[in-house]
Design a protein around this nucleic acid. Structure first.
Lengths: 350, 350
DNA sequence: TTAGGTTTGGCAATCGATTGCCAACGCACT
DNA sequence: AGTGCGTTGGCAATCGATTGCCAAACCTAA
């Protein structure tokens, strides 16, 4: 059969073998099995390889050994390009950890649609990847196949899916937001607004119940909490603020907790444009710890997620599974958040 | 020799062939060469494949055909996680375009150090990728090898490297910043500050000379432009602002142009904390078009880069090269920016 | 010198899919 | 029936590296 002569050749293992005057098997072993080949021979092989500029063909290697060192990451429906950067920071941290450990990272998607799921599944079944980091709640699937059927190790990042058999690495949203609520209470606040995200979202459940339960525990009556709908983005915060402004000024809540920083930024923008002052008139707390928060006017109080830690843990967990460690499928690693109070929050007189 | 029996088997092409009662070559052709196999046979093969849940093993396929459909992206020294999101938006756009066209995207790095370059080069020579999107000026290399030597198609995104033989897709920084300077001039401003980025940066050259040349053309004397050093991040803006505040208030510039939005945000933060008002006391313009800009207090004027268009063009250009189109190595695609004036800028009386 | 043991390196099968070449077959026309 | 042409499907080589098995080479000790 004809060779693929149109491709950039690049020396192969047999070229090195010929150059060094040994068999291909010896080259392979000299390069990958320390101790298996006598030192003088090994040196000869290495010299030949260097001289020819040889690098191993990973495709051939992967085919032979039946596995790769490439991990696929599935990103959420949208990248939420705003101020909150949990997805990106998570991606960065995962990428760094995997690269350090000699793995490759493949981005499966940057949105979630029928055709991207098709791509995800094809890739999962294509034999080129060895594991999946899932940063999404929607399980990827096509008409015929699901991700689970590919039989690959999967780890969920940000979303707790341990109950569905996917080991997960998550923040403790509930505790974090509870701490924020208590802090505001301690500063004298008694009337609250919570601006949520999307109703069906995992984080939304965690966060809104964190607010509700904590206020109840503190003895704050239910009617002193108003829940407004946001959308995890700037616009959602703006709309919620417009609603907030409809209340007579002497009956407004003094503390506003937002489902994320983008929402908080939108909220602050709208009420400031309406002539209110943050924090003189209303204290605002966000969630996520967007890097820009410290440099806003006023600087934004927030609940900082340890995105780096989260990504690292997820990548590490996946690698352990890939490398054969027995990890229970309901494993759940929880990473703590940190409350950061800045200018957007102040004490009020009772 | 022993089989790799520890791996999840998954049906292979020969299983399908047996099931359908034909040869493996027929299966391969039935599935990939439309028209080459008689319709009844093709149907039989397809049924068998579906029954067995067969998907082609991409590793084997890639080895045989001698190429892959995976593109590697090399990111800059740091992801600059701040408000400016040109890198991320570019990444997203590249990923979307490649995925749509059936290519895979591999992230090579999230920082640039000796060991990441090692990883980049190994990957480039590993035969698993077919092209590179370069979002960095530093050419990746190890002690022995350079990226160029891998003989892969490369396209540069954001940085003009067409003079070095790498087709490039870039914004026209120079023109964009010139337009901003003229707009400020038309609003009555006569005394300017430019807060730069890092001295050795490609964009920095473009932008600072855009400011200088335009002011000269407008007849503004050289001493009416002060150039301060930033660092493309919030902190750099804060430091530049501190320097700005040292000037007596009646001799300060009324217009400040920053090398990017992060710098502008840091600058505004610092002067606001010092009691100045933006834009009453000083007008500020950023660069990049960070999504959060519209929701800041005051909302930020900026020069918006068409990151989506940039990423798309880069991915498209690379695919064309990969698929054999003859693209001159000094190709240079320029994408226009757009000046967006918001609250941070105002007209002043002469 | 020889038996026994340990290195060392080579042979060749193997991973799974693709594809050049060719044989077999069918059909039409003479 | 024979010739010619177009279709269809099978054989087997090939991509490049890994690795089980074995034999040759070397070493040590009796």
């Amino acid at each position: 059969m004809a060779r693929n002569d149109d491709r950039v050749a690049g020396p192969s293992i047999s070229d090195v073998a010929r150059e060094a005057g040994v068999a291909t098997s010896t080259v392979s072993r000299a390069l990958t099995k320390p101790g298996r080949i006598a030192e003088p021979t090994r040196l000869k092989v290495e010299a030949a390889a260097r001289k020819l500029g040889y690098t191993v063909n990973q495709t051939a290697r992967n085919l032979r050994v039946g596995q790769t060192r490439t991990v696929m990451i599935v990103l959420p429906e949208a990248l939420y390009i705003g101020a909150s950067q949990t997805v990106i920071e998570g991606l960065e941290s995962v990428a760094r950890t995997l690269t350090e450990r000699g793995y490759h990272l493949l981005i499966a998607n940057v949105s979630r649609e029928a055709w991207t799921d098709e791509h995800i599944i094809t890739t999962a079944f294509g034999g080129t990847i060895c594991g999946v980091i899932l940063m999404a709640t929607l399980p990827p699937k096509t008409a015929e196949l699901t991700l689970a059927e590919a039989g690959l190790p999967v780890v969920s990042l940000h979303f707790d899916q341990s109950a569905d058999g996917i080991p997960s690495v998550v923040s403790n949203d509930f505790n974090a937001i509870a701490e924020a609520v208590r802090a505001l209470f301690d500063l004298g606040h008694r009337k609250f607004v919570y601006v949520g995200g999307r109703a069906d979202n995992y984080h939304e459940h965690q966060r809104v119940s964190g607010v509700r339960d904590t206020l109840a525990a503190l003895g704050v009556p239910t009617q002193n909490l108003e829940v407004l709908r946001g959308d995890f983005n700037f616009g959602g915060g703006v709309r919620a603020a417009a609603e907030y402004l409809e209340t007579a000024s002497d009956r407004r809540a003094t503390a506003v907790i937002c489902a994320n920083d983008d929402t908080a930024i939108g909220f602050i923008k709208r009420v400031t444009d309406a002539g209110l002052d943050v924090p003189a008139d209303v204290s605002v707390v966000g969630f996520d710890g967007a890097p820009v928060g410290a440099f806003l006017v006023p600087s934004l109080s927030t609940i900082q997620q340890s995105t780096t830690e989260l990504g690292q843990q997820a990548a590490d967990l996946l690698i352990r599974i890939v490398e054969g460690e027995a990890v229970p499928s309901n494993a759940r690693i929880e990473v703590a958040c940190q409350l950061v109070l800045r200018q957007s929050v102040r004490r009020i007189q009772a």
